[in-house]
Amino acid sequence: MKRLTPYLLVLPSWIWLAIFLVVPMAAMASVSLQTGNAIDGFAMTFSFSNYGDALSRYSTQLLRSLLYGGLATVAMMLIGYPVAYWIAFRGGRRKSMYLFLLLLPFFVSFVLRTISWNFLLADNGILFGTLKGWGLLPEGFHVLATTFAVVGGLTYNFLPFMILPIYVALERVDPRVVEAAQDLYATRGAAFRRVVLPLSLPGVFAGVLMTFVPATADPINAAILGGTSNTMIGNIIQTEYLTNLNYPTASALSFTLMAVLLVGIFVYARVLGTENVLEAAAR
């Protein structure tokens, strides 16, 4: 009994994982290999060609998704790191207020927030319409339905998920360690490069994971801000599922996306050196 206790204690989480992760995944994996249609039903035929067909039809959208997700992640890093740094080191007694402000947009639904950007960026909306009226922008100027709008929307929507983990990592950096670097002849810049940045990398790593994956798979931003020429893989999966009722193709695409993301994460962890990252995180 004693020897079983630890296993019994983790049992609830295993059951949780089984019900909410393993079972649906297995179901989807099985669907992805079936053939048929929504009216006559689907039957398991082990048709692995579903994957090849889906990929050849939608490779453009898949690559575009990876590109947009990647661009948004880079933009989030460039914006998020300074923000996190500022809150962690300059926030003073108002730190928690700044963090609250960061989370405030979450009180409004994701879709609504994206739609409000649609209003803001509309060709003749409050912003561009006014500027065009004043003659500050050419008549043909538009942002909506461009790559920029979609990547911008993704950046805006997932930014807090980049900032928070970086903030947590920076918060844990002992200010005396930074002082020690300065005491040892490092300029402010060198102290940042040699000490603060390496110590905050685990946060950046976590931030990238938490933003790149959902941004790449996101269908909302492309649908609302992207027009017809910026369709991402998330939109395709959604359409295949909900409109075309083509479950096998949608499932195959979902799995392909997951595989690509997992490989991407693995390569990323390798390049960055998980060992170093984990080691720094475990201190």
Binding site: R176, V177, E179, A180, Q182, D183, Y185, L199, E279, R283
Partner: peptide
């Protein structure tokens, strides 16, 4: 003069070693 330009070094209370 900032600390990085002073010819004195410090041993900190909690050592403040670079953990990485």
């Amino acid at each position: 003069v900032p600390p990085n330009k002073r010819d004195v070094n410090m041993v900190f209370q909690s050592y403040a070693l670079f953990p990485h």
